[in-house]
Simulated scan of single mutants.
Amino acid sequence: MSTPPICPRCGQDRLHRYRFKSDGAAFSLCTECDSLWWPQTTTDIAGALFLDDVVAARLGEEGNPWTTRVWADVIEAVPDEG
């Protein structure tokens, strides 16, 4: 199994695989700076999105989506294949 890459935005953590519980849509996430990349995008600073923005848009909300929920309500880590 290969080591996940270091986050290009913050350089503080590795990118880990997560998915949305609602539909299983997978993405890479830096849990240090909350940067998100969809599988079809290049994992660089220009392609990064912020988890809060993506979650709010998926839920049809504006602003902070975490006022009435926590990450575990919305996303989950993808288990390592191995």
Rank of each mutant, 00 (worst) to 15 (best):
G63M: 03
W38D: 04
G60D: 05
G63K: 07
E81W: 02
L49E: 00
D52Y: 04
G24R: 07
T31V: 11
I6E: 12
T42L: 02
Q40D: 08
T67V: 09
V78Y: 02
R17F: 10
G82M: 03
E62I: 11
T68I: 03
W37Q: 06
G60A: 03
L29G: 05
S2G: 15
E32F: 12
L29R: 08
D13G: 15
D13P: 13
G24F: 14
R58I: 12
P4K: 14
P5C: 06
A48I: 08
L36H: 00
F50S: 02
P79N: 02
D13I: 13
E32Q: 10
D53P: 00
G47R: 00
V54A: 04
V55Y: 01
L51H: 04
A57Q: 05
Y18G: 13
A72D: 14
R9K: 12
P39H: 07
C33S: 06
V55Q: 00
L36Q: 08
E76V: 12
E76L: 08
W71C: 09
G63E: 05
W66Q: 05
P4L: 10
A56Y: 00
A56R: 02
G11N: 14
C10S: 09
R9T: 15
A77L: 08
D23H: 12
A48G: 04
W66S: 08
I45N: 11
F27V: 07
P5Y: 06
I75T: 06
R58D: 05
E76S: 11
T31M: 11
W38T: 09
D13T: 15
T42F: 01
D13A: 15
P5R: 15
C33V: 05
G24L: 09
K21S: 11
C33H: 05
G82Y: 03
G60K: 04
P39K: 08
P79V: 13
E61W: 07
D34S: 09
A48N: 01
V55S: 01
P4H: 13
I45W: 02
A48T: 06
P4M: 13
K21Y: 08
S28V: 00
E81Y: 04
C33W: 03
M1I: 15
T43H: 03
L15D: 12
E81G: 09
E61A: 10
E76A: 12
L36I: 01
S22D: 11
V54D: 03
P5T: 10
L36M: 03
V70T: 15
Q12I: 14
Q40E: 13
F27K: 00
D23I: 09
T41N: 02
L51G: 07
K21E: 04
C30T: 07
E62Q: 09
G63P: 08
C10H: 14
F27I: 08
A25Y: 09
T42S: 05
R17Y: 09
P39E: 12
G63Y: 07
G11S: 12
D13Y: 14
E32M: 05
S22L: 13
D53I: 00
